[in-house]
């Protein structure tokens, strides 16, 4: 039971990203603005903090790899970056208070790092023609705003769920 809850939850989040884009990506409303959901990364970061770091690193790699295979077809980008960012996140959170506001700020910083690194990689491979200023204004800022909203509305619930899962673990052992 306890082993299944976390991967199941992460799978739901994984699919919800695609559904979110399908439902809300509408070029009439947001003419040029792109907002990319990174709910999966947020959930992974929180699980590293509230449940277990090493387990979360493994999940970060696995889900990142599935993400690469299914969505991007350039293997390794998200698998590597998800793992890196979850690692950096947990490293930083060791030194910081785990209040939800602090967690939100650090997780959003992680998303900024992810976006900038992916942009850099795509520029190197000439896979995008977006200029840096357009990237910042039309992509990075809306993305941060969207993920902030996600944290604002669901962060507390996810934390509750994770604390519940962790307590399950203790009683099982």
């Amino acid at each position: 039971m306890r082993k299944i809850i976390l991967p199941l939850f992460l799978s739901i989040i994984f699919i919800s990203e695609s559904i979110f884009v399908e439902l809300f990506a509408d070029d009439n409303v947001a003419n040029k603005i792109i907002y990319a959901p990174h709910f999966l990364l947020i959930s992974l970061c929180l699980s590293a903090l509230f449940i277990n770091r090493n387990l979360s690193l493994i999940y970060a790699f696995v889900f990142g790899f599935i993400y690469d295979i299914f969505y991007t077809d350039i293997l390794g980008i998200y698998a590597f970056l998800f793992t890196l960012i979850v690692y950096l996140f947990s490293l930083l959170m060791k030194a910081l208070n785990s209040h939800l506001i602090v967690v939100t700020i650090v997780a959003l910083t992680g998303i900024i790092i992810l976006e900038v690194l992916v942009y850099g990689i795509l520029i190197v491979f000439k896979d995008t023609s977006m200029t840096f200023t357009i990237f910042i204004t039309y992509r990075l800022l809306p993305t941060i705003l969207l993920n902030f909203c996600f944290m604002f509305f669901l962060g507390y619930l996810i934390k509750k769920l994770y604390v519940y899962i962790r307590n399950l673990n203790y009683t099982d052992i």
């Binding site: 695609s18 884009v21 399908e22 990506a25 959901p37 969505y71 077809d73 992916v118 896979d127 995008t128």
Partner: peptide, 15 residues
């Protein structure tokens, strides 16, 4: 019919 859309939106890809 469509089953998904790439959420990272770098590549305009649907599935």
């Amino acid at each position: 019919s469509i089953i998904a859309r790439s959420p990272d939106q770098w590549h305009d890809v649907i599935f």
